Computed example of a mutant assay.
Amino acid sequence: MKDGERRAEGNDSIVKEFVLLGFSDLPNFQGFLSGVFSIIYIIILTGNSLIIIITMVDPTLQKPMYFFLANFSFLEIGYVSVTLPRILFSIWTGIRTVSLPVCATQLCFFLILGTNESFLLGVMSYDRYVAICNPLHYPLVMNPKKCIQLAAAAWLSAMPVQTGLTWHIFSLRFCHSNQIDHFFCDIPPILKLACGDTFMYELSVYIVAILCAVVPFWLVLASYSKIISTILRLPSAQGRGKAFSTCSSHLLVVVLFYGSASITYFRPKSTYSAGLDKLFSLFYTIFTPMMNPLIYSLRNKEVIMALRTLILK
């Protein structure tokens, strides 16, 4: 049996590669899963690409909100491309082994892009806060230079933190089973395979998660508490409906992303369940990126009109 396919025994036998079990426990559904994941990937690429294109070519969408939406759509394409192609490759070829460096690279990019998404959701909530609570100052506050600076901060700030966390996790010795009961290299199933006490590593994961997820989430909550308070004071029902329609799409994406991710990363290692972890991971790695174009386009008249114009052209 190959070294990458065996179960390591004792501390002297160190794992050199992992086996991503993925959905191998469903042998009769491999064809079905291949079709479903292929369709989802095409929907994600097509939907998010269309949003990027229309925000670039349609003059009516040359606004800060749509600038950030285009950034978010581009981020979603990268985010899902870290995991879905590998899932499809494993299903099509049956090759499930992955070396430690490749596994570390996948985890690093996944964490960086996931953190970028968290920060960008916070930036988008700030944009909506300024637009609704301080509309007269909105053009001045959210000027093109400020928008680029906020987007750049959201994109770049995660790199050193998550690169350091990935190096920290993969400095561990893995001497138990080399089988990762997941469809990609994620922190909870990797820590489960580590030798010895991993308390300090779990603590570092919690600290990074607080900085990269909880802080932006509180920014979102603070922004929307002000936004809702302002909307409720609007004199006309039409004005309130328009404001709620503008914000509800973003708020729905926030709930989907933070809800499923927090359950995964704030759950103690002792309560880890492979089945539940896969389910929640599917939500924030695949389901949310697929729903985002639908959520933002179906609930936004300007986006619908821009899509209609693009299709007619």
Rank of each mutant, 00 (worst) to 15 (best):
I112K: 04
S204N: 13
S229N: 15
S171I: 04
L111M: 06
T285D: 05
K2W: 08
F109S: 12
T230N: 12
A222F: 09
L150N: 03
R308P: 05
D277Y: 12
G47V: 03
L156Y: 07
K313W: 04
I169N: 09
K146P: 01
P139A: 14
V220I: 15
S229Y: 13
I304D: 06
Q30G: 01
D197M: 00
L276D: 09
P160Q: 11
F257L: 00
V161L: 14
F67C: 06
A154C: 08
S297I: 15
E76P: 01
G94T: 10
P235K: 08
F32N: 02
L221H: 03
F170W: 10
K63E: 15
L100V: 15
F89T: 11
T93N: 08
N116A: 08
P268Y: 07
I54F: 10
L282H: 07
I95H: 12
I207E: 11
A8G: 11
D3N: 13
T97S: 15
I295F: 09
T93G: 05
Q62Y: 10
A213K: 05
A8L: 12
S273P: 01
S260Q: 03
L310I: 03
C185I: 04
T105V: 11
S177E: 11
L150E: 06
Y258F: 15
Y224L: 01
V303Q: 05
I311D: 07
G10P: 00
V208L: 03
R308F: 14
D197K: 00
C103H: 04
R240P: 08
V57M: 04
G94K: 07
R308L: 14
G22K: 01
N116V: 01
L310D: 06
I227K: 06
V254K: 02
W218Q: 03
T115K: 01
D127P: 01
V208C: 02
V255A: 14
S118G: 06
G4A: 14
V123I: 10
I231R: 05
P139S: 13
F110N: 11
Y41A: 10
I52K: 01
V82P: 01
D127Q: 08
V36D: 08
Y265P: 01
W155L: 13
S270E: 14
Y284R: 00
N48Q: 03
F68D: 04
P293G: 03
S125A: 15
D186G: 05
F72N: 00
D25M: 06
A261V: 08
T46N: 03
L26I: 03
F110L: 14
Y265F: 02
K269S: 14
Q162F: 05
I286M: 14
Q162G: 02
V15W: 09
I95T: 11
Y126A: 00
F74A: 15
G31A: 10
R128C: 03
M1R: 04
S204A: 15
L279P: 00
F184P: 09
F89V: 12
N178C: 07
S157L: 15
S73H: 07
F280E: 05
L120A: 02
T115N: 04
E302C: 11
